[in-house]
């Protein structure tokens, strides 16, 4: 187990390193001069060169990359090119709480909508509830988030002032209901189908028959014997979703005006703010890798047949 964790951590560090390096390389491959972006379109070549020197852009890519890695090893993500004097870490720290709250909300919607609907549909196949759930899942899966988000804003925030239209405020949860729903509804639809399939399958298994032969009430059978099996695939997907959401989902953040990591990343790409690009990419990569790890550990807690071993 300890060997497995050590090995796994080494892999995680390697993956994050690789992703960050790629982000760095791509940022330099863009055929535009970051110094020009900072200086503005009217700036003289001398001013641009001076800014490039200030930012260290006049040095070779290798030298820049090595000093970037050196800073990273000290936990320093660097200073923004564009936002004068602001560190990447502080910008991310400001944006991350919004993204995290939105991500948790999205996952929460996935759970509270997806799992119960899937279970109920599985217990009553071909019933009215099942058909409604199937139709709802089809809608949820096929509705593009930008369209759904705009529809929700138009009807529930603009026409009927149930929710705030845009931005963030106090209490935050109030401003995040529509965005997180938009974020989670696709996953919820997917989970409801997946849970329905798994539960249908589990209900046909011999150990469920045996539990019934034992005279256990259906509620206990669901709670103790069925749910665990239904949760196995859901746990994997939820972990991946959460990892992805925590990286910042730009489309949701921009529709609903949430100043999260996604918007930060987008703005930094638009201005070729290289430290900010690598910083936000690194945050996304770290969350993805970390959630993967958590999923694997959770799996062993639910399913005793899965054991963590070196070399897996």
């Amino acid at each position: 187990m300890i060997g497995w964790v050590a090995r796994r951590f080494a892999q995680m560090v390697l993956v994050v390193f690789g992703v960050v390096t790629l982000a760095f390389v791509f940022a330099y491959l863009v055929p535009a001069n970051p110094a020009r972006m900072v200086a503005g379109p009217q700036a003289s070549p001398q001013a641009v060169a001076s800014i490039a020197r200030q930012l260290g852009l006049d040095r070779s890519v290798w030298s820049q990359y090595l000093s970037f890695l050196g800073r990273l090893l000290h936990g320093n993500l660097g200073v923004s090119f564009v936002l004068q004097g602001r560190t990447v870490a502080s910008e991310i720290a400001t944006a991350l709480p919004y993204t995290a709250a939105l991500a948790l909300g999205g996952v929460l919607w996935e759970i509270v909508l997806g799992i119960p609907v899937g279970v109920i549909a599985a217990y009553r196949p071909r019933s009215v509830i099942d058909r409604v759930a199937t139709f709802g899942a089809l809608l949820g899966l096929s509705a593009p988030p930008f369209w759904l988000g705009l529809m929700l804003i138009y009807f529930l925030a603009y026409k009927v002032s149930l929710f705030p239209i845009n931005g963030v405020g106090h209490p935050l949860i109030w401003y995040l209901i529509l965005p997180s729903f938009t974020l989670g509804v696709g996953g919820a639809a997917f989970y409801s189908r997946m849970v329905r399939t798994t539960v249908r399958q589990v209900l046909r298994s011999p150990f469920i028959e045996f539990a019934r032969l034992k005279g256990m009430p259906e509620r206990t059978i669901l709670g103790r014997h069925v749910i665990r099996h239904a949760l196995l695939p859901v746990v994997t997907m939820l972990g991946m979703d959460l990892g992805y959401f925590l990286g910042g989902v730009l489309i949701i953040e921009s529709i609903f005006g949430i100043p999260g990591v996604g918007q930060l990343a987008y703005a930094s790409i638009a201005t070729i703010d290289i430290p900010m690009i690598t910083g936000t990419v690194m945050v996304a990569a770290v969350f993805m890798v970390l959630m993967n790890f958590i999923v694997d550990v959770t799996y062993t807690l639910i399913d005793p047949r899965v054991r963590l071993r070196r070399g897996r």
Binding site: P206, F207, H225
Partner: peptide, 10 residues
């Protein structure tokens, strides 16, 4: 089938 009449996760 005793191999499958007990729930593997319980």
């Amino acid at each position: 089938d005793p191999l499958s009449s007990l729930n593997p996760l319980v």
